[in-house]
Amino acid sequence: MTETRALTMAGIAHLALFATLSLSWSLMADHTITYDEPVPVEFIELGEMPTVTERPEPTLAAAPRETVDAAPAPDTDMLEETPPTEAPDLLVPTETPPPPAKAAPKPEPKKKKPQELTQAVDRNKAEADRALEEQDFASMITDALPPQITLSSIQQSTLVGLIRERIYKCWDPAAGGPDSAAIVTTLRVKAARNGDIIGRPVVVRQSGSANAGYKRAARDAAIRAVMNPSCSLSGLPEKLYAGGWEDFTLNFDPKDL
């Protein structure tokens, strides 16, 4: 019994020794390798998913968004392929056509009013006289005037503090390089009364001479902060909505960070 056990142990020990030796042998062996030539990694176009059937799978039936999102697919531009020219100020990526279902036109009419007026005026004063009644003028003037005047300066500064308090917690300025701290991103934000952001914040301007990549990252980080549900505007004072947080700008400035 003990003999068998001793034999087994000895056998295992031999095996272990053999294994160790072969391992060290393999390590000692000449591993000078003729390195395979670097295998190329090609970029390929991903306009459409290769051989994927365009038809939605049954599993996706519950996702009505899919038809909307399917629209960008045929666009053959790869994001990275587009040269990062100095157009990062662009508001939304132009690579993909805007989803048709967006509510973008809604806020437009208000903005257009002053323009329409100038057109009318420029075109022909006499014509304008005829076309527009006094009352129209009055209401147009009120419309053209900045609505913010309805908020007192105290109200304004209160609101500024409230909005800042909401947003900063969700702003993580992208890591960035040596000069990314100089990028100030200004977003125009339109909000619904329930706090939802209407459409997507629009980049009004970006200052700083950093490269396009940093600017794009800064833009994304700012938009993420505004769109983050945990930093929603809901619950801001109703009284300060009109002329206040219904439409405002945010300047994301990382220089003091």
């Binding site: 002053p114 007026l117 100038t118 003037i141 053209a144 005037l145 900045p146 609505p147 913010q148 005047i149 908020l151 304004q156 609101l159 500024v160 909005i163 800042r164 947003i167 900063y168 917690k169 969700c170 702003w171 993580d172 300025p173 125009r188 009004v204 902060a225 002329g243 206040g244 947080w245 439409d247 405002f248 700008t249 945010l250 300047n251 994301f252 400035d253 990382p254 220089k255 003091d256 960070l257």
Partner: peptide, 21 residues
Amino acid sequence: ALITGPAAAQNLSVDINQGVS
């Protein structure tokens, strides 16, 4: 209004110079 308008329309301008990393 048109001259002052665009500036005034962005009257409520909030500076965010604090973030969370």
